[in-house]
Every structure is written in structure tokens, then in C-alpha cells.
């Protein structure tokens, strides 16, 4: 008889991630889709693809837990959990100790502190604006006419420090126009943008102790980990496939829920 499948669906503002685990929490399959305008369609497609990836059948799904910005739109889910709970759970699965998790998402950032047994102690989310999020980086890339997928490599070529000081994404974009007028290089601006993200994150809360970063931004732009480590003075770790951390946490909650 096939393993029962437990599914976590993390509908983020930018991407929808699905992770499938068995009853022991072992990852069997996963998939990622752009969330787009139709969260239901994106989550259904991602689920089908993840089931295929697991080489399983949809009939084996025992429980689905949805999470993320669009968690309440996943009409086929059995229950929901916030992304804060799921990111904590997903990260703890890899690093079984007390830590501070930094999740940098498309539209919001979270700092979650968990204890040695995985219990959540505290969390903070960024304030209303998109400063320091993936949306900020996308706007800066767009202003510089650079594809977002090239930003990390571009920033690594930087030779001069360029500072972007504005909190506001719109004002930061204006600041960049001014930097371009002054002759700043796009590679330096790109690195300045990543530094700005790090600054916005570290001013949310202290990152003392073990620091772990998750989310799409660090997944696609590992330079953020390096700049963050430089800034806080100690290493910042990341689980394998950090973009799926929330979906993994949701899948693990699905296992718990199905048992109850």
C-alpha cells in the first residue's frame, strides 16, 4: 500500500510552493508555481506537479495544510497555518536548535525566534511597506533594466560602495535615478540594493545567536546571506532549498493534524 501523503501549500505573494512528505516527514516531492492572479489555479497546478514529482497519486493525499499570504484561498486544504508558524517549523526540521529565522519574502519579512525545542518565542513582521522585501529588489532591478535573475551575479562584480538610504521603495527608486545621473555603475547599485535589504532586516530585531535565513530572496540571491553575515558579525545559515521552508513546515503540520 502506498505511503499516505501529507501536503503543505505555501501561497506567497510571488510564488506558490508545495511540499509533499510521508508520515515520517521525509520529503517525497515538491513544486513551485508563480502565484499570479489566481491563487486557486496556481496552488492546484503546483499540487499536481508535486504529486507527479513524488511519483504518487492524488488519491494518496491524507491531509493538506495551506499557509502564506493566500492560505485562505486554497479551497482544497483541510486547514490553514500562518506562514510564521510554518517557516519556524520548516527551519527547525533542518536545524534542531534555538535560532532566529529571517524570512525574506516577496512582500513581507519576518523574524521568528524559536527555542531549543522548536517552540516559538517571538516574531516580528516588517511594517506595512515593502522596504527590504523581494518587491523592493524587483523594483530596483526594473529601474536599472536588469533581469532579477542577474542581480546576484551583477552585485558580485561591485567594486565601489553605493548606499541606498531611503526606507521607501518608491523614494529608493528615485534615489537610484539620481545615482545613475551621478555616474554610479549598475553593479554597485545592485549591491547597494542588497545591502539595503539587509539593513531593513537587521533593524527589525536582534539576530543574536544562530541565524537562519529562508525565503525566495535568499534562495535566488545568496549574496544576501553573505552581506547579512558581514553586517551582524557571524554566519547566517540557510536550509536546503530555503524557498520551500514554509511549505515544508505546512506539510509537517499536516502530518500532525492528520494524527489528531
Amino acid at each position: 500500500m502506498a505511503d499516505k501523503l501529507y501536503v503543505g501549500v505555501d501561497v506567497g505573494s510571488s510564488a506558490t510552493k508545495v511540499v509533499i512528505v510521508n508520515g515520517k516527514g521525509t520529503v517525497l516531492g515538491k513544486a513551485l508555481e508563480q502565484s499570479g492572479m489566481d491563487f486557486v489555479a496556481a496552488s492546484k497546478t503546483a499540487l499536481e506537479r508535486a504529486v507527479n514529482d513524488a511519483g504518487a497519486s492524488i488519491d494518496d493525499v491524507a491531509h493538506i495544510t495551506s499557509s502564506g499570504y493566500g492560505r485562505k484561498n486554497v479551497e482544497f486544504a483541510n486547514d490553514t497555518k500562518t506562514e510564521i508558524a510554518c517557516h519556524a517549523r520548516g527551519a527547525y526540521q533542518h536545524f534542531r536548535e534555538a535560532m532566529t529565522i529571517v524570512d525574506i519574502g516577496g512582500q513581507d519579512n519576518k523574524i521568528i525566534k524559536i527555542g531549543a525545542d522548536g517552540n516559538r518565542l517571538d516574531f516580528k513582521m516588517n511594517r506595512k511597506c515593502a522596504a527590504g522585501t523581494g518587491a523592493f529588489l524587483e523594483e530596483i532591478a526594473r529601474r536599472m533594466n536588469v533581469d532579477m535573475s542577474e542581480m546576484d551575479a551583477l552585485a558580485r562584480k561591485s567594486e565601489e560602495i553605493v548606499t541606498i538610504s531611503s526606507f521607501c521603495t518608491v523614494f529608493a527608486a528615485t534615489e537610484i535615478l539620481s545615482l545613475i545621473r551621478q555616474g554610479a555603475q549598475t553593479r554597485d547599485i545592485a549591491k547597494g540594493a542588497f545591502r539595503s535589504v539587509v539593513k531593513r532586516v537587521i533593524e527589525m530585531d536582534s539576530l543574536a545567536g544562530k541565524a537562519v535565513a529562508t525565503g525566495g530572496v535568499v534562495s535566488h540571491n545568496p549574496i544576501v546571506l553573505e552581506l547579512m553575515a558581514e553586517s551582524i558579525g557571524h554566519e547566517v545559515l540557510t536550509p536546503p532549498e530555503p524557498q520551500f521552508s514554509g511549505a515544508l513546515g505546512a506539510a509537517l503540520y499536516a502530518v500532525d493534524e492528520a494524527r489528531q
Partner: peptide
């Protein structure tokens, strides 16, 4: 524990409902 939500008494332009509800739900989960 404590949680802080950003908003306003009257100016709902300063209130992000989605984010605040997520914070409240996460707090209660905690």
C-alpha cells in the same frame, strides 16, 4: 509574549489588514 500591529485609529490607509490578521493569527498560534 507580545505582538505589535501597525495601524491607525481612523486612517485605514495606514492599516494593512492582511498583514495584521496574519500577525494576530500567528500570535494566537504561538
Amino acid at each position: 509574549p507580545s505582538v505589535t500591529i501597525a495601524g491607525d485609529l481612523n486612517d485605514l490607509r495606514l492599516y494593512s489588514e492582511e498583514q495584521s490578521i496574519t500577525q494576530i493569527e500567528a500570535f494566537v498560534e504561538q
